[in-house]
Computed example of a mutant assay.
Amino acid sequence: MTNFLTKVVVASSLLLSTAAQAHFQLVFTPQVIFERTSDVPLKLLFWHPFENGHVMDMVTPQSFYAVHKGKKIDLMNSLKPMRFKGSSNEGDGFDASIKLKRNGDYILVVEPTPYFEGSEDMFIQQITKSYLNKGGVPSGWEEPVGLVAEIIPLNKPTNVIAGSTFTGRVLSEGKPVAGAEIEVEYLAATPDMDTNSPTSTTATPPAGGTIVALSDANGYFTFGIPKAGFWGFAALGVGPATEYEGKALSQDAVIWIKAHDID
């Protein structure tokens, strides 16, 4: 009970601090569906993407890899430090890459080193998944990858249809989390892969602060997708770790999906 209450307090504190802006770990590439063998460039950023806002400094992640048909592909050697120029500041991030050889789903996973949020005197660790597909062949996008905190998609994350819904399930150490508070974020300005800066902003955050959903008794949540583009979901404080280097830690589960319009 004590550990559960600690998680609730940490998550609630973080929600209050991000009423106007939400921290979101990002593993980004503009194209997520590929027909042939491809060398895919990636960017790792810790950002406020809906507002095209403040960029936080990343340090080298604890791990960065892809999962393809149950096999882990280590991507740490592909990381190259870079500076991302946001609309209001610059921050440290990483360029990276992955080679897609075989057909199927590639689940990109970054387990970042916790970030210290000085204004709240606490650490944030957003364990993040993004998805790529080669050849149109499904091969495990709906499967957990064994993270201490993760969101399992119930809709194929590379081709959600704008105007439909997305459903996910929040897990902590493999078990569903009831009543998880999930922040919802839109990538309003996508990163330019060449200039390390945002493209033009295509959306404005709605009034009322951060969009939040709650998971049900079995860890499920559903959100209507109003617009094409990249959508992120962060289940706050659902991981088992609540402390890092003597400070409170919010260990979050993040997932990014791509929504498409139908012509």
Rank of each mutant, 00 (worst) to 15 (best):
K134I: 06
P144C: 03
W141C: 09
S139K: 02
F166I: 05
G86Y: 01
Y131S: 08
Q125S: 05
I107P: 01
T113L: 11
F166G: 01
N89K: 00
L108F: 03
D105T: 06
F94C: 07
D92R: 10
S88N: 13
L108W: 04
F94Q: 06
V148I: 11
Q126H: 12
F166R: 04
P157A: 09
G104N: 05
I161V: 15
I124Y: 04
S164W: 09
G86S: 04
N103E: 14
K99Q: 12
I124R: 02
P153A: 04
F166M: 03
G146R: 03
L108G: 03
E143N: 13
T113W: 08
S97C: 07
E150Y: 07
W141M: 11
G136Y: 04
K134Q: 14
T113V: 00
A162G: 05
E150C: 05
G146P: 14
K101G: 09
K85C: 00
S97M: 14
S88G: 08
Q126N: 12
E120L: 15
V160G: 04
N133I: 13
T158E: 03
G118D: 13
S164V: 11
W141T: 08
G135T: 10
Q126L: 03
N103Q: 14
K85I: 00
S164M: 15
S87G: 02
D95C: 05
G86L: 07
L132F: 10
V109I: 14
S97T: 06
W141N: 09
I127S: 06
P153R: 12
V145H: 12
E142A: 13
S97L: 08
I127V: 15
N133W: 03
R102V: 09
S164F: 11
Y115W: 13
P144R: 08
P112N: 07
V109R: 09
P112T: 00
N133E: 14
G140R: 00
Y115A: 00
V110K: 01
E142S: 15
P138M: 02
